[in-house]
Design a protein around this nucleic acid. Structure first.
Length: 588
DNA sequence: CTTTTCACAGTCGCGCGGATGGGA
DNA sequence: TCCCATCCGCGCGACTGTGAAAAG
């Protein structure tokens, strides 16, 4: 829980000098540490921010993670953009948590509804921290401190870069990306309810204007309706929750206030408002009854990259394209589904990496071996007929980028040029991964330990070597290889199970990961620059979709390559030691 | 003019029923 | 011949974004 003062600190840290909306989360997210990229479908990409359980020095944790020092309120900036409240390693006032953020079930009615009723929209944000901090609530004993991994985090980040939009309909629309978590640190035999709550992320009403999201008046804080979605498997034991991914793929969003109370599968939202999903884990009795007064048994986790604006129709074509590219249900809207990868090299819509002047800078395959596949392959895989021709002059993306991001410019590409040494390191990454999740885990997901990787192949179709993962990250690879892949949103366990040994091993690794994470943070500046640059490029490239093929031009190729380079690097940067596939938020 | 609603086409997963093959 | 398990194809429903029309 954060104090109000923490909010200031957060603002000061993140505020953009030019007054634009800063990058409250993106930049830092990308710097996430301890991220281990998992060879799996997209749903298996996880992120965690860990407060090392082996360390009692909470303060130290701040330096270990990208969000370090990002304590703050839900939103503190005048423009409402500074709402992320992250406080790793923050020492939170227990009082604030227990009463307003982590109400027992009996308190649920009001506490979990905040944001709905008049006058209760944000009160808890600045004052108590409202649980928006990506951490569990204090009060839980060290032995029961949970850690929550955000699955498919890279995908969330992709959307977040353009300001995620979620369609809401009267009959309810599923989220995509959907919320999926892995939980560790629970008591194996204790029972828990796991549920998601969606709260307003800021007090503003938003509208899409001039190619970007801008605030437009105040949010309607009178919105009634269900804001909570209890996982259908609740209640269940800690062992059960930790055994597999906890997916909320069936959670639906609606704007139908009348169909809310009866339908626990739907969360009622208001269009053009920004929301923040939160995960709650509540320890309950075996019968599923929450122990009233046991506030400490509730833990709340918030991932800022999960924020989204509810819309009845997509506003940003970038988001639309990302949805189409990654949502299996939208496969029918993908362009050149069959043709683009079956065409000869020269005829391929997607430019060959070797044809790009900058292709030599593309990160060699070895480095991509484990991670890059998860990230942004969609860009270089996009058919050229999607390339943006400048219809929108103001890339909305920029509004999400940190200011320094725009400084780095082209140099960022070279900064992330991968050397053979790095390639070697990536091989270690493979080992690292195997250690963490075992080779059997890899195999269970259909991942070949592969010899992949010439730089060419990897940079061009980086995800092709990992078809299952590609299903989520580079759906194009699916086209290319015509491989049957698991749905990216499949709730199947990943890793298959957390054995006690694995959990223990995971914990043991935390300090090491944290160390690596710290190193990464130091270089975050340049990384952010990379992100910024490529985001801008992407905005230009993919602003419009479904352009006539004749409108495309291979002149875009260099730009594409640049995007490819930077984006892939973006998700490599934090993984110098091959850790980082899994990152998690944990209670302090 | 902006926002919402609706019908639509395409894809996918699931369940059902029939066909097939092996064993008792 | 019967029983059971497995495989395959079909149909249905769920799901998606699109684009036009309606509503405000």
């Amino acid at each position: 829980m954060m104090g109000e003062g923490e909010g200031n600190a957060f603002t000061g840290t993140k505020a953009a000098p030019d007054g634009r909306k800063g990058s409250p989360v993106l930049g830092e997210d990308d710097q996430s540490t301890g991220r281990r990229y998992h060879i799996d479908e997209l749903g298996s990409d996880r992120y965690f921010i860990s407060s090392s359980q082996t360390s009692s020095d909470v303060a130290n944790q701040c330096s270990l993670f990208p969000y370090a020092g990002q304590t703050g309120t839900m939103y503190s900036g005048s423009n409402g953009s500074r709402y992320s409240s992250l406080h790793y390693g923050s020492v939170l006032p227990p009082a604030g948590f227990s009463s307003s953020v982590c109400p027992s079930r009996s308190q649920f009615g009001s506490s979990y509804q905040f944001g709905q009723g008049p006058g209760c929209l944000y009160p808890s944000y600045p004052g108590t921290g409202s649980g928006i901090g990506s951490m569990a609530l204090p009060g839980s004993t060290p032995g029961t401190r949970a850690q929550v991994y955000l699955c498919n985090r890279p995908l969330w980040l992709k959307f977040h870069r353009f300001q995620t939009e979620m369609i809401i309909t009267k009959q309810g629309r599923r989220m995509f990306p959907f919320l999926s978590f892995n939980i560790t640190g629970l008591n194996l035999t204790a029972h828990y309810n796991v549920f998601v709550e969606v709260v307003l992320a800021d007090p503003n009403h938003w509208r899409f204007q001039g190619g970007k999201w801008v605030t437009c008046g105040k949010a309607d804080n009178n919105m009634q309706g269900n804001k909570m979605y209890v996982h259908p498997e609740s209640p269940n034991t800690g062992a059960h929750w930790m055994r597999q991914e906890i997916s909320f793929g069936k959670l639906k969003l609606t704007n139908n206030k009348g169909a809310n109370n009866n339908n626990t599968q739907m969360i009622v939202l208001q269009s053009l408002h920004k929301y923040q999903p939160r995960l709650h884990i509540v320890e309950v009795t075996e019968e599923g009854v929450e122990d009233i007064g046991s506030d400490a048994r509730t833990q709340t986790f918030t991932f800022p990259e999960n924020q989204f604006i509810a819309v009845t129709a997509y506003q940003n074509t970038d988001i639309t394209q990302l949805k189409i590219d990654h949502n299996p249900f939208a496969k029918g809207f993908r362009d050149n589904y069959d043709s683009m990868y079956t065409a000869p090299e020269g005829d391929r819509l997607t430019p060959s990496p070797t044809a790009s002047p900058r292709s030599h800078q593309i990160v060699p395959g070895a480095r991509y071996a484990m991670q890059p596949f998860f990230q942004d392959q969609f860009v270089n895989n996009l058919p050229q007929n999607r390339f943006y021709t400048g219809e929108r002059a103001v890339p909305q993306t920029n509004s999400l980028l940190s200011p320094q991001a725009e400084d780095a410019g082209a140099s960022s590409a070279q900064r992330w040029f991968v050397t053979p040494v790095q390639q070697s390191g990536s091989n270690k990454l493979d080992l690292s991964y195997d250690q963490d999740y075992s080779a059997s885990s890899l195999l269970s997901y259909g991942i070949k330990p592969l010899p992949l990787q010439t730089s060419h192949a990897l940079s061009y179709y980086p995800d092709s070597a990992f078809a299952s993962m590609a299903a989520g990250w580079g759906t194009r690879s699916t086209y290319q290889r015509k491989m049957t892949t698991g749905l990216p949103w499949s709730p199947r366990p990943s890793p298959p199970a957390f054995t006690d040994d694995q959990l223990a091993a995971s914990k043991d690794k935390l300090p090491e990961e944290s160390t690596a994470a710290s190193t990464w943070v130091e270089t975050s500046h340049s990384l952010k620059s990379v992100d910024s640059t490529d985001s801008g490029v992407y905005s230009m490239v993919c602003k419009r979709r479904r352009m006539s093929p004749g409108g495309s031009s291979t002149e875009n190729s260099p730009t594409i390559k640049c995007e490819n380079l930077t984006t892939t690097e973006e998700y490599n940067k934090d993984n110098p030691k091959g850790m980082g596939y899994y990152a998690f938020y944990t209670s302090p």
